[in-house]
Write a protein that binds this DNA or RNA. Structure first.
Lengths: 169, 169
DNA sequence: GTTGATGTTTAAACAAATCTAAATTTTTAA
DNA sequence: TTAAAAATTTAGATTTGTTTAAACATCAAC
């Protein structure tokens, strides 16, 4: 396959994967484009290459910056803004984990802890099942939270090696 | 908080979490309802409790069965079908991991391997960046794939203990 | 200040995902 | 068989999410 076709395929695949995981398709595509761009590129570049509007590009890029995946660059003597993506996949994974932990996991942990104190008849099967499910999910969620925390602190080799070591003793 | 309010809150939270992770909100809500139901329940029960149509209930429940999270039960002398959710959170996590691996991770791995053989000018920065990004993502994706595979084989205590042990020596 | 280039916001158009209502099929029991 | 109960399918309505176009704001150079 030629480079040009490969790029398109990569952008498409990244967009699809993103949308399957609750990330706006266009945002994932812009990220993909930035991932394979050796130099920082402009809004115009993104608009052209992905055929999307200026407004969409602007909002999407700012979202990506909000996720900590992309940064602005300024070139001396130019008003235009340039955008550049961190290409270290380990940083990317950590950044995404960090944001999802903050945006999704933590709110759920909060609700689960509120739900732990729901009152009811001890004998009521409805109540017992509710309590059990909430408590089990709570425990798992806390484990996940801790694992993510460790991941955020760790460096890649240490983390992956530790994980992989566990699986082939 | 009272049980009734707790149930609603749980269903709502589960639905929200699902939709943030690319799972249809209603499907997550039906799953939540089943998770806190001590006994198998009918289509009618689901329709009533979540105020959704029969058709929607039917499709959603079949999806959940397709994900391996819910099963049909037949009661002697009744035509009606009853539905019951596995309440073991470890099984649930594994089941979801298994399906997402199959539905999303594996197709991506396939595309990445195709993209590994894209041809181009060795000196071209565009080509070099493309190759590097694809290859790095490929490596990470393979690690994730292996980790999931291990998770699918492992039992909960072994897995979680192994993970947690790594993080507090 | 004015102009043109760029960045930002937002109302409305558009697209995609979801849901319903109703038609259809299947099943079971009389 | 037939009837009625339940399950399934699907066309279209509805809702939600996304994108655009255009108005507006900001900035830098003249």
């Amino acid at each position: 396959m030629e480079l040009a076709a490969g790029k398109l395929k990569f952008i498409e695949a990244w967009g699809k994967l993103g949308s399957e995981w609750g990330i706006n398709r266009t945002m994932a595509q812009v990220h993909a484009l930035l991932l394979i761009s050796p130099e920082a590129i402009t809004t115009e570049d993104i608009m052209e290459q992905l055929s999307i509007s200026r407004g969409n590009t602007n909002m999407t890029v700012r979202d990506l910056i909000g996720w900590g995946l992309v940064e602005k660059q300024h070139k001396a003597g130019e008003r235009k803004e340039y955008f550049f993506a961190d290409k270290d996949v380990w940083n990317i994974a950590r950044q995404v984990a960090k944001e999802r932990k903050k945006r999704e996991l933590e709110p759920v942990l909060k609700i689960l802890s509120e739900l732990s104190s729901v009152t009811g008849e001890e004998k009521d099967p409805e109540f017992k099942t509710f309590q059990k499910s909430v408590s089990d999910i709570n425990k798992l969620a806390k484990s996940v939270d801790k694992t993510m925390e460790a991941m955020l602190k760790a460096d890649q080799n240490w983390f992956l090696n530790s994980i992989l070591k566990v699986f082939k003793p």
